[in-house]
Design a protein around this nucleic acid. Structure first.
Lengths: 202, 202
DNA sequence: AATATACATACGAACAAACGTTAGTGCATC
DNA sequence: GATGCACTAACGTTTGTTCGTATGTATATT
């Protein structure tokens, strides 16, 4: 039964495989029920262990949420960095960022959704950290859009409003995941880009 | 102190003023903390009463959520009805529906957001009822869009995807409410319509 | 007009259940 | 013999909710 026993060493090497299992199960559970409604006993059952045993691998329920939120934040921040320092015209940058959000929502949607919906349940060193990162990310994205407006690539609109629309529109992909008659992921992406980016072009 | 005493009769006439106060406070609280994280003691404090006293006016915490969710559902269903039976061209219908969502989000955003975010915490007679209404609403909206595609008013896109984008994009207005440097509500509406409806036109 | 009756609503105290988490113990591996 | 991990038991809180009671107002009776 103790198939994980030999992993002990790896874990102490600061690379816990069992902890990753827990975080993954937590991600699924938090997405399904919400952070507050998901209990540690639910999570334990999903992992196949007693609730108390979880605490051999994690420090608290909130640590799980922190791990999820900042993993997502890092992913998006890193991508934004590379896009910003590229030589694309502004409208192409916006498109690339939109496509990245769509793909993350397609491939990692449980992670992204939990971070987006439940980050407010973080507590305060982490809460304001995350909140700031979020604000900064949106400001930078709005900056790219404004540059595109000045160069005449993008029609004259309020940049922060575009950011709101874009970032929230991709959340609709959650419903796509649950729907029965799905179009393909590729078609979904092209449709979203077509509607939103064409709506932006001057 | 008992200024509400004389309301007893009115309340027994099936029109509880105090209950409305409670529902309004609950709406604000649920929006702020989420349904699960908001406690009845929090709510009681917001109303200015002890937790036990709430139960002279309501039957359960969930009843509050029901009231919120179905109030919102009725509002949108009713509006969709009038739009559907109007003689507008399809693209104008879609615009009218989008504008209605935007205005509801501007004026009743706590109500709308709670219904949208927390309806999953309803339990089962109400849960599936609400879920069905939600699905039906989206199907009908997609139907209008498809009609617009056939008449050539709307460009060739996947209608359900448009619905997803539209309905989720308006949720971004929550961030607008919290933001410091707000553009006016009217400007916000026109920007959103400009971006989304122009992006749809053939 | 005074009194009795009914009722709506506030309260403090308490409930059982569920919550996140800790402590102590024993087994398995290195 | 040390370490890692799962277990059972239990902890102190917080949860939604109920109970019994007091008190104010409205209505009916005298």
């Amino acid at each position: 039964m103790y198939i994980w026993g030999h992993m002990a060493k790896i874990k102490s090497k600061n690379n816990g495989t069992k902890k990753e299992v827990i975080v993954e199960a937590a991600t699924r559970l938090f997405r399904e029920k919400g952070f507050k409604a998901a209990s540690m006993r639910d999570l334990a059952e999903a992992v196949g262990v007693e609730a108390a045993s979880l605490y051999n691998h994690i420090q608290s329920k909130e640590e799980l949420l922190q791990e999820i939120c900042f993993k997502v934040a890092n992913t998006f921040n890193q991508h934004l960095e590379t896009i910003e320092s590229s030589e694309l015209p502004a409208i192409r940058k916006v498109e690339a960022i939109l496509r990245f959000h769509i793909r993350q929502m397609l491939e990692q949607y449980e992670l992204v959704l939990v971070a987006d919906r439940d980050w407010k349940h973080l507590s305060d060193p982490y809460l304001s950290n995350f909140h700031n990162q979020r604000r900064t990310y949106r400001k930078r994205l709005a900056g790219i859009i404004e540059k595109g407006i000045h160069t005449g690539e993008i029609k004259q609109v309020d940049a922060p409003t575009v950011v709101l629309i874009m970032l929230h529109a991709v959340n609709g992909i959650e419903s796509w995941h649950r729907s029965r008659e799905k179009i393909s992921a590729k078609q979904l992406e092209e449709n979203m880009v077509l509607i939103m980016i064409e709506g932006l072009k001057a």
